[in-house]
Design a protein around this nucleic acid. Structure first.
Lengths: 144, 144
DNA sequence: GCAAAATGCTTAGTATACTATGCTTTTAAC
DNA sequence: GTTAAAAGCATAGTATACTAAGCATTTTGC
């Protein structure tokens, strides 16, 4: 199975980071963040704040995003407000709690990155990030 | 969100490969392979051939693996036979069809790796694989 | 031999993440 | 104005991937 090394290694490394992140957030008292929730969070932070825009951006139905946002409202990390410009729309935004969670997530990610850079060496770490972010060519769109 | 680059990049690259692999297998007429199915397949190929051993190895219940193996039997890619040494056990093995599918998967993965190595340059590709397989330190066990 | 342990298998139940459908409200187009 | 389109929202349904509990069979330990 030598040929499968790359895909398996990528998956395992993603899991390594994901678990480290979740564990650190858990230590700080935050509940688990599901993948759809973190995708929605990323969209909000990057300025995509209307539920149907987020749905389009992620390639899923409005209902799916509606459900995910509902969970996040329940958790108190985001809130919905009517769009004053177009009252058909709602606008999703982070609450103070959500902003704190995001900050903690950033710190946790920074800590993990630092730890990894120490272990691998900063040159290899930088090269890894650069290669992962290089142009790998076309691929199919990924759902949430 | 600069701090999240690494985990997002890892996930996207995993998706890039996973989708490329699935698309190629689909072109050759194979049905989709779920993640649990591919994990079971990997176990079988690596010599873990008893359902309960596979369950332990993956950290999930025997019922979960039983169900996954049932799907794969239905698809005709694996078969169950009693263990002559211990008749409490069954032994899972690839059928001729399963072996053909595995071969096609290997070829598809090789093609993807070659394509990627061309694009990135062989040095960077080799460095990527080496870094991903280096010692990243402890992490939590990953379920299926 | 007989009880304990391990395995396989079945059934039932749970959680998650979706899609489909239908309804209401608001904007936009004519 | 009236109609069409878009967004939000709710309900129902589907698929997947698990766990829990229970039973039958086989091995093992005493």
């Amino acid at each position: 199975m030598r040929t499968n090394q790359l895909i398996i290694a990528l998956f395992q490394r993603f899991c390594w980071l994901d678990e480290g992140l979740q564990a650190r957030l858990h230590d700080r008292g935050w509940p688990d963040v599901s993948r759809p929730q973190s995708m929605v969070m990323t969209n909000i932070v990057s300025g995509i704040v209307r539920p149907s825009d987020i749905a389009r951006n992620l390639g899923v139905s409005r209902q799916a995003i509606h459900s995910t946002i509902g969970q996040m409202v329940q958790l108190g990390i985001v809130e919905l407000a009517p769009d004053p410009g177009d009252r058909r729309h709602m606008i999703v935004s982070l609450t103070a709690t959500g902003a704190r969670m995001r900050q903690d997530a950033q710190r946790a990610m920074d800590a993990l990155s630092d730890q990894l850079a120490e272990r691998l060496g900063h040159d290899r770490f930088d090269a890894l990030l650069a290669t992962l972010e290089a142009d790998w060519g076309d691929s199919i769109e990924r759902k949430v």
